[in-house]
Design a protein around this nucleic acid. Structure first.
Lengths: 150, 150
DNA sequence: TATTGTTATACTCTATAACTATA
DNA sequence: TATAGTTATAGAGTATAACAATA
C-alpha cells in the first residue's frame, strides 16, 4: 500500500465482480438508454413502448394488435390498453380487417407525431453511439441480435 | 412480386424499424439474458438482484448496504428488505461498523451458495457468448460500459 | 378448435416520503 | 447537517385467467 492509501480517509476501492459480466453490463446499458429515451419522449406524452408501437404501425399500415404484440413481445392483454390509448388520442385509426381483428393505421396526426418520434430517437441514439464507427455500431447490433434471436 | 408471393396466403413480411436501433436491441438482449439468469437461479431461490448482492458482499467483506446500493444503483429503501432476507436466510451476517451502519459478510452457508451462484452465472453467460472470440467479448463489454458509464 | 380483442387482477420492481438513530 | 437503515406506499410494467365474438 502506498502513502496515498494510508490514513483513515484512504479511498476504499470496491471490487465489482459484475464488471466483466455481459448480462449485467447489458442491463445497465439498457436501463440507461431506456431512461434517456423516456426523458426524450416525455413532452410528447409517450412512453418508449407506445413510441415503438407507433413506429411499427407507421412501417406496416394495417397491422393488427396481435401481430404487433408478437413482434415486440407484448402480451395481447397489454396491447389492448395501448391500442385504445393511441386510438383515443387520434394517433392511430382502426380499419376493419376481418370480423375479429382490425388493422391499425396512423392518422394524419399520428404521422406528424411519429416523425417527431423518429427525430427524437435519432438524437437519443447519437448521444450514446456518437463515438462509435459504423463498423463498431454494426458489430454491436450483430452481437446484440445474436444474444436474443434464434 | 414473384410467384411465391402471390395468393392470399402470401407471407406478409413485417417491416421492423426497431431492428437497427441500439436502444431497442439492447433491451431485447438484456431481457433475454435476465430471464435466463432468473431461470438458472430459481432452484437456489435467488433473484438476479439478490445474487448480485451476494457477489458484491463476497468480493467486499464488510461493505455496507448503502455502499452496495450505490454500486448497483439500488435505492437504500429497496436494499433494506434484500439485506433482511439474506440475513434471515443466514447467507449474510451483519457486523457492527459504526453506530448507524453495519458491514455485511458472507456466512459459511453464504460462501457455499455464492460459489454455486458463480458457477450458474458462468454457464449462463456461456450460453450467450459461446461463439464470441475473446476480442469480440472484450469489444462488447467496452461498448456496453461506454453506454452507461461516465 | 383456434384466434382476436377485452377486462380484471396479481405480482414484481422501483421510487418517494417520512421517520429514528447516529456521525 | 448529512448519512444509515427502516417502513409504508404508490406507480410502472408484465403475466395469467376468463370471456365474447369470429375464423
Amino acid at each position: 500500500m502506498n502513502a496515498s492509501m494510508s490514513g483513515k480517509s484512504a479511498s476504499k476501492k470496491i471490487v465489482n465482480p459484475l464488471d466483466d459480466m455481459v448480462g449485467y453490463q447489458l442491463r445497465r446499458a439498457s436501463v440507461a438508454m431506456f431512461d434517456d429515451l423516456a426523458t426524450a419522449l416525455v413532452d410528447l406524452d409517450l412512453r418508449p413502448t407506445a413510441a415503438s408501437i407507433l413506429l411499427l404501425v407507421g412501417a406496416n399500415p394495417g397491422i393488427t394488435q396481435s401481430a404487433i404484440g408478437r413482434v415486440l413481445e407484448i402480451e395481447r392483454a397489454n396491447m389492448a390498453p395501448q391500442a385504445a390509448m393511441l386510438t383515443k388520442r387520434d394517433l392511430v385509426a382502426r380499419s376493419a380487417s376481418d370480423g375479429r381483428s382490425q388493422g391499425l393505421r396512423l392518422t394524419a396526426l399520428g404521422k406528424t407525431i411519429v416523425t417527431k418520434v423518429r427525430a427524437r430517437i435519432a438524437v437519443h441514439e447519437q448521444r450514446f453511439i456518437a463515438e462509435f464507427s459504423e463498423a463498431e455500431k454494426a458489430a454491436l447490433l450483430r452481437a446484440l441480435k445474436s444474444v436474443w434471436q434464434d
